[in-house]
Design a protein around this nucleic acid. Structure first.
Length: 748
DNA sequence: GTTAGAAACAATCCT
DNA sequence: TGTTTCTAAC
């Protein structure tokens, strides 16, 4: 098993005791090393899997690692903890956070929640949000938490500085509000776990004894708080193995502290350092380009990647007249390659710097009927209808989450307005009780008068569903909420495309709840809510689907594709305007690392593209070719304008006047997708070579079984684009319409 | 208390 | 250009 590893990889696998730093270049097989290392620990060293902790960067990476270990060892892999920092912390906090004075049923606030909480905080403190933006405070607080700076510490450091004192005040109040709502934000998950370990020796010792072997992937992206967490855990047995690449550090904005990797040997003087420099992924040309680009950074650990792979094709560089044409070129190029049998759609990825760039590509994909998928952008769980329903679940689960209660108190409309809510809030504050508890006592609040009659049904609703918690599953509770509130009914009545898309989203949420019940060992409402809070869009990306994927360079980290397009290679876009005008030269270096990450995603073919002219927020910009393109020697490049990018105007291009509308197809008014709408491609059917088109194993009149609704008879099947809409008359629950891919009906 | 239309505003990247 | 907030009319 260990023979397919090279000597360096083997050394890393066999070095199990003591601190170990693995500097693993892009594509050098670090995931293989980590999985084999886990296997080696279990099989050769006789380590109980129970004693192993592996931290990955995304849930997807965690899943993959677990699967791979699973394949290599017969049994026991399920008792290894493989998870992200955040997921691991939630698991620990669910058990012990009561020791920090929180309730174990805490809720997790996402960015939206944080924003509305901050709004309240600013209102309470009478801060003019025109002068000091909520976003600024949230940014400051987040950075403080990344660095483990508590509100008290922050306050101490702020003395004498007017603005900082204000920030400290906000930080304190924000934290107090979170506590009052029994909620944690993302950063708190890490901070509170560190706090717990520092504050409670018994708990710390518990976990130190458990996690005798610790591995951390993507170590260059850990922040100070995460480092401290790991340091505490590893302090007893000191079997800490971290894997990273300083050249791929791209999360400074999230607090990633590059010193963690650069100073590892100072913190652990007895650390062993192993470098993995052989690349197995890319062609010579691609790797050379990456090496030339990254060589322009100063202050990196010296290393040189090499490969035994062939030279491969030249890197294709294209400079188009406009962003429309850029999108058009890329999509056509993909289709050409697929037609020629050079690759499949699933081999292709389009990577860009900003999410906004995806739109033009989407439009081209839609009109050309090409299967694609956008990763990132608006999170599924951030959509209004989903957040509404989740707010109901949160209220049922944790009555102390004021934010959730206030979100849904008037959804659907109950005629309770801002004035009433204000009065309830005043009462709650005076009595020092939660918003929900104040609602329960609506009758006793003199100021609200008749409005109390409107509040009562809401409280009764929540109480009645809450009383069913004991014997109903998560999906049934969700269904109960939907039925009792009439949420879906109201949408059905609207009968618009938008409403239909929302209903479809809700159906998907139900499926997710069902799936959760099936997979979790001990399904609980809290468990479901936290799983939902911690998923990233990238987690759902599956291998083997035949569609082109579009995503930001950040999301692409850790992935690889045979055919990669880096779009928007323009100064001002990539590197971004913000980093160009910044006076900190390190910011450009981070962009360059991002470029390095992008280039090294490609296995056989890499295309760089840019546009002379592009519309950004309604304004037309004329950008120069990205400086990163110019850092690649001309002999590695091919394409329309190879060599030293500065464009000579080719005569063939000037037939079209600058600024004129390029192609009427792009200007169709309603072509843009709004976040709640179905993505355009979902309503058009794919051409026949798309492999994910489904066929049904049942037909009209057949008896089928649904995981939740039980058995029933198929009444109608309507083909709706990529999916079938199936109407089933269920024996127990009556007639339901559903989409075949969500419903997972089984013929009986 | 609700709604639609107008005006203001925004600058990446993400668990 | 796209989204959020404000304002005025119902």
């Amino acid at each position: 098993m260990y023979e397919n590893l090279n000597s360096m990889q083997r050394e890393a696998v066999f070095c199990t005791e003591g601190p170990l730093l693995i500097l693993a270049g892009a594509g050098s097989g670090k995931t293989r090393v980590l999985t084999h290392r886990a296997v080696y620990l279990i099989e050769e060293k006789g380590v109980n899997p129970y004693h192993i902790l592996a931290i990955t960067f995304t849930n997807k990476a965690a899943e993959e690692m677990r699967e791979r270990i699973d394949k290599l060892v017969g049994f026991g892999s399920e008792s290894i903890w493989v998870s992200t920092f955040h997921a691991a912390c939630v698991r620990i906090l669910r058990r012990y956070i009561d020791r920090l004075g929180y309730d174990n049923h805490f809720t997790i606030y996402d960015t939206d929640d944080q924003k509305s909480l901050m709004k309240d905080v600013c209102k309470n403190l009478q801060i003019d949000t025109k002068v000091y933006k909520e976003k600024m405070f949230l940014g400051v607080i987040s950075s403080a938490k990344d660095e483990l700076v508590s509100p008290e510490e922050f306050t101490r450091r702020a003395v004498g500085d007017f603005v900082k004192e204000k920030q400290a005040e906000v930080y304190r109040e924000y934290q107090a509000q979170l506590h009052k709502n029994n909620a944690l934000d993302f950063d708190d998950l890490i901070v509170k776990t560190v706090e717990l370990f520092r504050h409670d020796a018994e708990v710390l010792n518990n976990y130190q004894e458990r996690f005798r072997y610790i591995m951390v992937d993507e170590y260059q992206d850990t922040n100070t708080a995460q480092f401290e967490l790991i340091r505490l855990l590893a302090d007893k047995y000191r079997n800490l193995c971290v894997v990273g690449d300083d050249d791929q550090s791209i999360y400074k904005f999230r607090g990633a502290n590059i010193r963690n990797i650069l100073n590892f040997e100072e913190i652990y003087p007895d650390a062993k350092v192993i470098k993995l420099e052989q690349n197995y992924r890319s062609t010579q040309n691609i790797l050379n380009a990456a090496n030339f680009v990254i060589a322009n950074n100063v202050g990196r650990k010296p290393k040189s990647l090499w490969t035994e792979n062939s030279e491969g094709e030249k890197i294709n560089f294209q400079r188009l007249d406009s962003a429309f044409e850029e999108a058009d070129y890329v999509v056509r190029d993909i289709q050409k390659k697929v037609r020629e049998g050079k690759c499949s759609y699933g081999d292709c990825a389009i990577l860009y710097r900003t999410n906004a760039q995806s739109r033009l590509f989407e439009e081209r994909f839609v009109v050309s009927n090409t299967p694609y998928r956008v990763v990132g952008g608006v999170n599924f769980y951030a959509r209004k209808e989903i957040k509404d329903l989740l707010a109901y679940l949160k209220t049922i689960d944790n009555g102390r989450d004021d934010l959730a209660v206030r979100r849904i108190i008037n959804v659907p409309k109950r005629g309770i307005g801002a004035a009433t809510l204000g009065r309830v809030q005043v009462y709650a504050t005076e009595m020092d009780i939660s918003f929900y508890n104040a609602l329960k006592m609506a009758d006793d609040i003199p100021s609200i008068g008749r409005a109390g009659i409107k509040i009562k049904p809401f409280v009764t609703l929540i109480q009645s569903i809450r009383s069913k918690l004991e014997y109903l599953g998560v999906s049934q509770i969700l269904q109960e909420v939907i039925d009792e509130t009439g949420y879906v009914k109201e949408l059905e009545a609207e009968n618009t495309d938008e409403a239909k898309a929302r209903i479809e989203n809700i159906d998907e949420l139900i499926s997710k709840a069902v799936a959760y019940e099936d997979s979790a060992e001990e399904p609980t409402l809290s468990g479901f809510l936290e799983e939902v809070a911690l998923v990233a869009d990238i987690d759902s990306l599956q291998q083997g689907n035949d569609y082109v994927v579009l995503m930001t360079l950040h999301s692409a980290k850790g992935l690889e594709f045979p055919n990669v397009y880096l779009a928007g290679m323009e100064d001002g876009l990539f590197p971004s305007y913000m980093t160009i005008i910044s006076d900190d030269p390190m910011e450009i270096e981070e962009e360059r690392r991002l470029c390095y990450v992008g280039i090294t995603r490609a296995m056989t073919k890499l295309t760089l593209s840019c546009a002379r002219q592009r519309m950004i927020r309604g304004e037309t910009q004329y950008n120069k070719v990205s400086r990163f393109v110019k850092e690649i020697p001309g002999n590695l490049l091919g394409g329309a304008e190879s060599g030293q990018g500065e464009a000579r105007e080719l005569p063939a291009r000037s037939f079209r006047q600058a600024g004129s509308k390029v192609n009427p197809i792009f200007t169709v008014g309603n072509a843009q997708s709004k976040p709640y709408q179905k993505k355009p491609y979902q309503s058009t059917s794919f051409s026949s070579n798309a492999t994910n088109s489904i066929s049904l194993e049942y037909g009209n009149g057949d008896r089928v079984k649904h995981i939740k609704f039980g058995e029933g008879t198929v009444v109608q099947i309507v083909e709706g684009g990529r999916d079938f809409e199936v109407t089933v008359d269920f024996d127990r629950v009556g007639t339901k319409k559903m989409f075949a891919s969500f419903a997972k009906l089984k013929k009986v």
